[in-house]
């Protein structure tokens, strides 16, 4: 018994220098950009940057068109009602440094080789009347007639409730970049070509004009 105790005591004494008797310090663990993405973005933008309910971030053309500052601003300050602000100064969970790391990570991993679409990511809306004919020519085949008589194969984008929820910028981004992750024909190139800058502005203006003016706005 005494020998056993002596052995145990010796073993314990020998183990003492392995005990991590260190002062824990309040530290902000550095999380890689993809860790941040999986925790804070994947819920809406998809597990690997695509096929989420919100627009895909794994979209080289989108990341090439959107500037770094604009991307950081959208992450930090939010966009419309459905993209929340993630900056701590706006009540979100991320520091400015984390947001920058996240933006840079996405641009490097998913934006490589992206060709800008040749027009600014954001812009003012054009003429709604002209947009109506752009819509009829380029959008109606998939999204149905604007008057709702023919629903289209990909669901209406002139639905009043949809338009109440989609921000102006979300409409412009949808026209510019589409949802290439959802399959062929959804890449923002109706009839095989990208719309001209004025056409984009006009069709966005047309969609905005379809948004009901009365009632509570959700944008």
């Amino acid at each position: 018994m005494k020998r056993l105790l002596a052995t145990l005591a010796t073993l314990f004494a020998a183990a003492c220098d392995r005990v991590p008797l260190e002062q824990p310090m309040p530290s902000q663990a550095v999380v890689s950009w993809d860790g941040l993405y999986l925790t804070h973005c994947a819920g809406c933008h998809g597990a690997d940057g695509s096929l989420g309910a919100a627009r895909p971030m794994r979209d080289p053309a989108y990341l090439a068109t959107l500037s770094r500052d604009e991307l950081i601003r959208v992450i930090g300050r939010g966009q419309g009602r459905l993209m929340p602000a993630f900056d701590q100064s706006a009540g979100g969970p991320l520091t400015a440094e984390e947001i920058a790391r996240l933006a840079d990570g996405m641009r490097q991993a998913w934006g490589a080789g992206g060709v800008p679409v040749g027009m600014p990511w954001s812009g003012s809306a054009g003429a709604a009347e002209a947009g109506a004919s752009v819509y009829a020519a380029h959008c109606q085949a998939c999204h149905g007639a604007a008057d709702g008589r023919a629903p289209g194969t990909h669901g209406s984008v002139t639905d009043a409730n949809y338009l109440r929820l989609a921000s102006d910028q979300a409409l412009r981004s949808a026209v510019l970049f589409g949802r290439a992750d959802l399959g062929a024909g959804c890449d923002g190139r109706p009839n095989g070509r990208r719309l001209q800058s004025q056409e984009v502005a006009d069709v966005v203006a047309f969609l905005i004009s379809r948004r009901p003016a009365t009632g509570r706005s959700d944008r």
Partner: peptide
């Protein structure tokens, strides 16, 4: 954190 981390 499911709302931001668990995709549809």
């Amino acid at each position: 954190d499911a709302w931001t981390s668990v995709p549809t």
